[in-house]
Amino acid sequence: MKSTHFSIFLIFLCGLAIWQATQIPTSGLRDSIGAKNFPFFIVSLFVIFSFIYFFQQLSFYKKKEILKNQSTNNVIFFCLGCLILILVSNFVGFFIASVLSSIFIARSFGTVINLSSLKNCFLITLTVWLLFSVVLKLQLGPLVKFLS
């Protein structure tokens, strides 16, 4: 991720924010500010500074950004881990989704995936699940969703 890419992402967010700000219906209340004006002001602020940043990065782009030996692969593994958790948790429950996700997350931190690391992922998730569900009584759902 280079700063120019991020500035383009910010411009995209500006577009989303403007679109959403225009969707706010006018309030029927006798309120001099209303539900629309404050969001419009904030979105304008965001748009102005995002464009300043975008133009700053455009001029900087010519100088070429030097990236050190970073690992994009690690980020891909990290994102895959997160994606698995998002997509699978509703079907198989948090526990299994989290075990699967933690394998990819651990890989993104340079862990070699073998039987021992799989065991570690399982144990970490089990400990967290027991801590949350049994000790702290927070709702993480059943250990294995499709069996319950």
């Binding site: 948090f94 989290s98 997350i105 862990t111 570690n120 949350f132």
Partner: peptide
């Protein structure tokens, strides 16, 4: 590496709960 993996699992569990 395991410390950070554990942190992520705790964080996601906290949000999911």
């Amino acid at each position: 590496n395991w410390l950070y993996t554990g942190i992520i699992v705790i964080c996601t569990a906290s949000v999911y709960s």
